[in-house]
Structures are given as C-alpha cells and as structure tokens.
Design a protein around this nucleic acid. Structure first.
Lengths: 117, 117
DNA sequence: TCCATAATTCCACTATAGTGGAATTATGGA
DNA sequence: TCCATAATTCCACTATAGTGGAATTATGGA
C-alpha cells in the first residue's frame, strides 16, 4: 500500500459523520444499506451524505451497487485489512510478543467465535 | 471509546508526515526515538515535526519522556488497539466468518511467530 | 409520456488545518 | 555564569475541507 492510499483512507475516516457511516456499514456487512436508509438513520441531509459516501468510495473503503432507485453501499473489508496491515507494518519484526498481544486484544476478543480456518 | 477520540486519532494519522512518524515509531517499538532523530531521518524542519508530534500525543497515539536534552517518543500500542477495535466493532456479531478472516489476514501474517499465549 | 422517489452534482460560503521562520524555553557541560 | 544543543511555541499566511439549498440525473410505475 502506498502512503497516499493510506492517508486517503484515514482522512476519509477522520470525520464523525463518515466514521459513523462506515461503522454502520461494517455492522451491516455483508448486505449493506441504501444511501437513503443511512441518511434516515443518521438524520443527515441527503446531499451531504452523498458527498461523504463519495469520499469513502474514493478511498476504497466502501463499494456501491444500484438496486432499482436505491444505491446500496457496503464496507470493503479487503481495503480495511490492507489499511490495518499498513499501520502495523514491521511492528512484529522487532517485538513479536508485543504485537501478537495487540492482535489478540483487538481482534480475537470479537472475532473468534468460529474464526480461524 | 468515544467517537471524538477515534476521530482525533484518525485525523492525527491522516497526514503523510504524521503517518510516517507514527509508522517509524511502531517499528522502533518499544524503545522509541528522539524528536531530533526523527526529524533527521525524515528530513523535516524541527518546528513542524514538533507540532505534529504534539498532535499525535494529544490523540494519545504516542507518548514521550525527556532524556537529557532529548525528548523520546514511542508509539502507544494500547491506544492503537482501542482504535482498531472501535473500527471493527460489532463486525463479527453479524458474520464471524468474514471478520475472523479479516483478523487472520491483517495480523496473523506478521504477528504469530510466537504470538498467542 | 408524466409523476414520484432516490441519489448526486453544483455552488458559494465558512471554518479548520498546514507551513516554516523567528523567538523562546530546557538541559548539560565547561 | 556562559555557551551549545534540543525541542517547543508564536505568528502570519496559504491551502484545503465542510456545509446544505437548489438544480439535475436516474429509475420505476401508471
């Protein structure tokens, strides 16, 4: 991942409105939500939301597909993973015991009900 | 974690210069680096770097301690973990198989040399 | 074709963030 | 005390991001 992509993704998330949208889409994975439904739930004007969804799309954090008159947005887990990997890069080279712990804290706690292959 | 804290952390990282500093500190964990050493390695003016370190500190992404005439900065893994957890929150409630996969992709690849307890 | 709903784009305005030179503060050594 | 090094704060200036009303575009149904 190039630094520009990482900055674009982080900038996209560095905004209370967009972060709320993204988290809502993470929680609505993998079905996604229509733009109108998001606007209704967060009580924001449609045009502002649209701008913010565009920013999230451009940063590749969400994808969209049209379904009739609605446009359905979903979180892109692949890009999320790439971003997190970039933030942690070479963390473990120096001290695996520290970053392994971080890994556990962050993701095991919520993701291992039936997680690893 | 409150959304304001998450936005502060993400905003702090959403800047090429600060992101470079943060990643350098992640890689220099847990010893950390002196401000002057960071400025030298990244070839940035001391005052700009100082401002950026202040922003990262304020967002609790780095901590500092004085050592003689130098100030040593280190990455704060605890805050990092909290932020990542916030981003992924309730991801797994809906679809553990998807988010477990994400967890694997992101962190196992680099962190399991001797990782989990 | 005509209307209603859904979403996006355009635009002007306001607010916030970034930049680096110069001055200041903190510390250690002679 | 005096000097050198390290880091931070101050400041004025420039650049970028956020906002929402109004207009526009896309789609489906009658």
């Amino acid at each position: 991942m190039e630094i520009e992509n990482a900055v674009a993704a982080l900038s996209a998330l560095a905004h209370a409105g967009r972060l709320s949208v993204f988290r809502m889409l993470v929680q609505a994975s993998p079905e996604g939500l229509a733009a109108g439904e998001i606007a209704r739930r967060l009580d924001v004007p449609a045009n502002s939301l649209s701008t913010n969804l565009h920013i999230l799309s451009h940063a590749q954090l969400v994808s969209s597909r049209r379904d009739g008159r609605s446009v359905i947005y979903s979180a892109r887990h692949d890009s999320m993973a790439t971003l997190l990997e970039y933030l942690m890069e070479d963390c473990c080279g120096g001290s695996p015991e520290i970053c392994g712990q971080l890994a556990d804290t962050v993701l095991r706690s919520r993701c291992t009900e039936e997680g690893h292959a």
